[in-house]
Design a binder for these strands. Structure first.
Lengths: 141, 141
DNA sequence: ATTTATGCAAATAGTTTGCACACGT
DNA sequence: ACGTGTGCAAACTATTTGCATAAAT
């Protein structure tokens, strides 16, 4: 029994072909962040039969089960907002998006993490979640 | 001639009623962040005649002219993403969203700002923009 | 055999656009 | 009077949902 099968079971999800394929795709892809449509096309291209609606449904289930993390990178680039998904590997990290290439880089900075908690605390709150995206360009010269 | 009239002129926008009303509304409202629809309703309620499409068009123009800043707070709360707008007062700040009340608090933290620049630099990039949202809850106890 | 998932097509929500008319200068 | 802005309705995009069929246990 495959590793993916076990992950699905553990998440309380019946092990079906579409779910397996999507999970495998996300694990194998070098491009760590994919939109629903990219996943859909990739599966069609590799010969699988799947519906776009199923991709969306499965991704939502995966998100609920914490198998996957959903992001909305609004780089203010004009085009309609689109969600993209990445495998949820347990480790928290933030994102840096290159405005020239669209490349997504992951990073963690403990100082920023700590400061965020402190700031929330200063205002009388507990920090539950946060979303940090740095929009960057290759350093000139 | 009103302050708002001057702002519009300076932005290169013809001074029209809808634009004036939207600008005034954003200046007067205590709720600093409003969605297109909230603005639309507020204007109707106050007796103005305006179309929702116009609200969207004007807000886009305002954004291009840097009169306004657009945000997409994806609090992962399920419901479809909706943009909200705030007056662009020149000062940069980040946001804290209370998951219980939906309240939006603004803050600036120089340490976080600095660290962001340093992190981008470490990866060989220049920081152009960033988006930081802390999702918080009132401190328990 | 029974429950749950899938695929398709139609529905939805937010936002944008084409076009005839109205407004600002 | 001229060019631009507006309102309405229709278009569009990403995503969700209803329903009859198909697959998983």
């Amino acid at each position: 029994m495959s590793e993916e099968t076990r992950e699905l079971r553990k998440a309380g999800l019946k092990v079906t072909l579409p779910r397996l394929r999507i999970l495998q795709l996300l694990e194998e892809t070098d491009q760590k962040h994919m939109t629903a449509d990219e996943i859909y096309r990739a599966l069609l291209d590799q010969g699988d039969e799947i519906g776009l609606a199923t991709v969306y449904r499965v991704l939502n289930q995966f998100e609920t089960a914490c198998l996957v993390k959903k992001h909305m990178f609004d780089d203010g680039s004009g085009r309609p907002p689109q969600a993209c998904y990445e495998l949820h590997d347990g480790d928290h990290h933030d994102h840096m998006v290159c405005l020239d290439t669209g490349e997504v880089i992951e990073f963690v900075d403990e100082e920023i993490e700590r400061r965020q908690r402190e700031v929330a605390d200063q205002y009388g709150y507990d920090l539950v979640e946060h979303s940090l995206v740095l929009y960057v360009r290759p350093r000139k010269k």
